[in-house]
Amino acid sequence: MKKKLTTVQFRGTKEQEEKLLEVIAKHQGTKGAMMPILQEAQEIYGYLPIEVQKIIAEKTGTPLEEIFGIVSFYAQFALNPKGDVSIAVCLGTACYVKGSGDLIKKIEEKLGVEPGSTTPDGKYTLEATRCIGACGLAPVLTINNDVYGRLTTADLDGILEKYM
C-alpha cells in the first residue's frame, strides 16, 4: 500500500539531532550504510519525517529522493509517528468477512484519519493489519495493548471513548 505522508508537526529535540549526527558520523564512508542509518534514525525519532531525511541527505551527500525511495519501499520504515492511541484493525480474511472493513471505515470517519497515518495532533494512529491470529474473536481490533473482539460498528463509540 502507498505510504501516507504525515500531517503531524515535527517535534524533534536538539538531543535527538545530536544522536542522529553521531549515528551518521559512525557510518560515514561505509558503503551500503543507508539502511542501518535509517534504522537507527527511526529508533531515535520513532519515525522518519522530512526533517530527519533532509539531515541524512545533507550529511551523507545522498539525494533526498533516494532516501525517500528507500523509506517508502520498506515496510519497516514509518513516515508517520505513532500516536498516543494506536488503533490496529485486523483485515485478515476471517475478520474481513465478519465486517472489519466497516469497522475501519467507521473509525476513519470518526477520527478523521486514514489507515497508515496519524491525526495532525499526533494523538491517534490507525493501521490496517494482516491476520493477528485471533480469528476466533473476529472481527478484532487492538488499541495499544488492549484487544477487542466480536465487534460491531455500534460498539466503537463506547470503546474509543475510553481513550479520548
Binding site: 502507498k2 522530512i50 533526498l64 533516494e66 525517500f68 525511495g69 519501499f73 520498506y74
Partner: peptide, 16 residues
C-alpha cells in the same frame, strides 16, 4: 526523481 513506494504502487516521483 526516483522510484517511490513498492510493488504495484511503485512510481517515479520526487521526495515526499
Amino acid at each position: 526523481i526516483g522510484p517511490n513506494d513498492r510493488g504495484f504502487d511503485t512510481h517515479i516521483g520526487c521526495a515526499f
